[in-house]
């Protein structure tokens, strides 16, 4: 299986502080993404999960060639994205499109839906003869009535605006869609529609999907694989089913156990995390999760764990959760 997108040791740095603080020996930058590697195949869905500030959006932007101060290696169809010049990056936008988190504010309030859908074509210097038919097709693809074409964003409901965003992302037949919280703020009934649409397009067009979300219930249903981010790193990456049933990293286990259960009778056993995510300015020594980890031991405070890789997943932890079952399997 050759990867459509291949990311190796990706780092994204944000310069911070002024000259003064740098002269005093303060750090010159913080790393929002600190060494992330993964592959994504055509037709595959990978979900990125993590708290706000864990670097999900920064990672997604860097992968789409939108980040600055990016180092590492990102190849899309064998081409190095980070080494591309402006013209090549411009062409890349045809193949890699973005669905933004805030559906309504990502659409210009001054344009009609028709103009919004024409925009991708204009930007790439295309004027198909059958533009009207194209737009009707796009609206149909996202199940919006043709009459919507003359509306402006403020006349759309949240779900409709979201679907216009999806239609825009699909306009130029991309190969990879990066969806940043595609269902945030949507009602459960509409959420299903948007996810079914993305999944349907994935199946029909062989799209690869990189979905950022913190809704674990969605991840369970739509993602082939999931990656859990903490402080800009993947602490665990693996098949969705495997990770859900048998998480290795304590942070993954805590996240999964925090997922509210729709059953008033069930009293879920929760793994409680102490404190807040540490600041990127002061990354903890050893395992970066040790300060909040209920299972941390001495080794965790001093030594950063190596990556453990097996067939279905990889994780970084000295004392993985459920290690007994892990040993009996191998």
């Amino acid at each position: 299986m050759s990867a459509l997108l291949s990311v190796r040791d990706l780092e994204v740095a944000f310069p911070i502080g002024g000259l003064l603080s740098r002269l005093r020996g303060g750090p010159a930058d913080i790393r929002g993404v600190a060494g992330v590697s993964f592959d994504l195949a055509a037709g595959e869905t990978l979900a990125l999960v993590g708290e706000s500030g864990s670097g999900k959006t920064t990672l997604a932007r860097a992968v789409a060639g939108l980040g600055r101060n990016v180092s590492g290696n990102v190849t899309f169809e064998g081409k190095d994205i980070l080494a591309m010049d402006a013209a090549a990056r411009h062409r890349l936008r045809r193949d890699v499109s973005f669905i933004f988190q805030d559906a309504v504010s990502s659409l210009s309030p001054r344009l009609t839906v028709r103009q919004l859908l024409e925009e991708p074509f204009r930007i790439h210097g295309e004027t198909p003869d059958n533009m009207d038919a194209k737009i009707a097709d796009l609206l149909d693809l996202v199940s919006l009535p043709p009459a919507m074409a003359d509306r402006r964003p403020h006349e759309l409901s949240g779900g409709q605006a979201r679907r216009v965003g999806v239609a825009r992302a699909l306009a130029l037949d991309p190969k990879l869609i990066i969806a940043d919280e595609p269902t945030a703020g949507l009602d459960v009934s509409v959420q299903g529609e948007v996810l079914n649409l993305l999944n349907d397009l994935r199946e029909r067009l062989g799209l690869a999907l990189l979905v950022i979300t913190h809704n674990l219930n969605i991840v369970r249903h739509i993602a082939d694989r999931m990656a859990i981010m903490y402080l800009g790193r993947f602490v665990e990456l693996g098949e969705t089913d495997t990770v859900f049933h048998d998480p290795r990293h304590p942070y993954t286990a805590a996240l999964l156990s925090a997922n509210p259960v729709v059953d008033p009778e069930a009293a879920p056993e929760r793994i409680t995390l102490e404190g807040e995510m540490p600041s990127l300015l002061r990354r903890p020594a050893g395992c970066e999760f040790h300060g909040r980890c209920p299972f941390a031991r001495e080794l965790c405070r001093t030594h950063a764990p190596e990556v453990t890789q097996d067939a279905a997943r990889r994780f970084t932890c000295h004392y993985p959760v459920g290690v007994a079952s892990f040993l009996s399997q191998s």
């Binding site: 459960v188 009934s189 509409v190 959420q191 299903g192 529609e193 996810l195 079914n196 999944n199 809704n215 219930n217 969605i218 369970r220 249903h221 739509i222 969705t240 089913d241 997922n259 509210p260 259960v261 729709v262």
Partner: peptide
Amino acid sequence: ELLFACDPAQIKERSRALPTI
């Protein structure tokens, strides 16, 4: 009933097609 059925958390079996109203 439909609202509850739509909630992905309510669906025990993994399913790519989610119910809608």
